[in-house]
């Protein structure tokens, strides 16, 4: 029962000039040590907002409600000081674009040392030793030279490795990786994915991988949660999601993601486009794009229900049953 990180009934609302917008809608998630949970969704589905909230990085006009429980402490209702002690230490984040997430005018070694100094109060020498070890672990060649470099002097892949080293430096329990490979080339993406896989098994941290790429999910995730328009529409073990799909949106995503293996003439695309979060359709948010839409879908929003052990989906129907 006691999971490492538990999110319960989390809602995030933004106040905008056009009224309040619900970015995240009553979602519940959990993840444990040594496990990788992938959050899949398109842009605007609220997948990033959920975890920015967990890190206490919600924008000023956002409000959140619900429980985010890390190892017994509630992250949402925490004093700023306490939160600062946790962030970077017990829970760390890897951002999509390492160039913007690293301070441009500081040497990367210094930046990581700052984290160590803040959380563990280590002196320069001891810190450098730990950083060197960590750089070796994330396969950064010539760690001593790299530490003295500025972010812009590193290549994209190395920068992302530095980000990962920085996230790992305090041996956190939870690592949130927000699209860690989207800005990278495929060959580098493959390296980073392997690295994350190693981290999962070696360090035993919980990894939350936010992505839109189902190929990446297939390679690393143990469990998957699919988000659409601020809600979780399907969640379960990775094999269930891929081979025993219950929600039409997940199925649509699977059908339209290209692969080298498939040779098809025509992609089965999902029609339409993702809904505007401040103007969600009535009933099921996916109903305007769903192929199996019925009357009830337009009237009643389906609750997320357990369909099989550890596999739940928010659809009024069993997939394939019309």
């Amino acid at each position: 029962m006691n999971r490492l990180l538990e999110i319960k009934d989390l809602s995030v609302v933004f106040d905008t000039p056009d009224g309040s917008v619900k970015a995240v809608n009553n979602i519940s998630l959990d993840v444990d040590r040594g496990e990788c949970l992938a959050i899949v969704g398109e842009s605007g589905s609220g997948k990033s907002q959920t975890f920015l909230t967990a890190m206490g990085l919600l924008a000023d006009n956002g409000r959140s409600a619900g429980i985010i429980n890390l190892n017994g402490s509630d992250l949402l209702n925490m004093q700023r000081n306490d939160l600062n002690k946790l962030r970077g230490n017990r829970i760390a984040m890897i951002f999509q674009d390492p160039m913007t997430a690293l301070t441009p005018h500081m040497k990367v070694g210094e930046q990581i040392r700052e984290v160590l100094d803040h959380h563990q109060g280590l002196g320069k020498k001891a810190a450098c030793e730990i950083i060197r070890e960590m750089f070796n672990k994330v396969n950064i060649p010539e760690p001593d030279r790299r530490m003295e470099m500025y972010p812009h002097e590193l290549s994209g892949g190395l920068r992302q490795r530095v980000m990962i080293a920085m996230a790992l430096i305090c041996k956190p329990d939870v690592i949130i990786a927000d699209e860690p490979t989207t800005a990278l080339d495929v060959t580098v993406q493959a390296q980073i994915m392997d690295l994350l896989n190693e981290i999962k098994t070696e360090i035993g941290a919980a990894i939350i991988l936010i992505t839109h790429d189902l190929g990446v999910v297939a390679g690393i995730a143990d469990r998957v949660a699919v988000m659409y328009a601020g809600s979780i529409v399907e969640s379960g073990e990775v094999f269930d999601i891929f081979y025993n799909t219950k929600h039409p949106y997940t199925l649509g995503l699977l059908n339209c993601s290209l692969s080298l293996e498939k040779k098809i003439d025509f992609l089965e695309a999902i029609d339409g486009h993702p809904p505007n979060p401040n103007n969600l359709p009535n009933g099921c948010p996916f109903n305007p794009r769903c192929k199996n839409v019925r009357d009830i879908c337009r009237e009643e929003k389906p609750e997320i229900k357990i369909k099989k052990q550890n596999h739940s989906s928010a659809c009024h129907f069993e997939l394939g049953v019309k």
Partner: peptide
């Protein structure tokens, strides 16, 4: 390097 969206094959 290209990931395959198929967990069994990919792993």
């Amino acid at each position: 390097a290209i990931p395959i969206p198929d967990p069994i094959r990919e792993k």
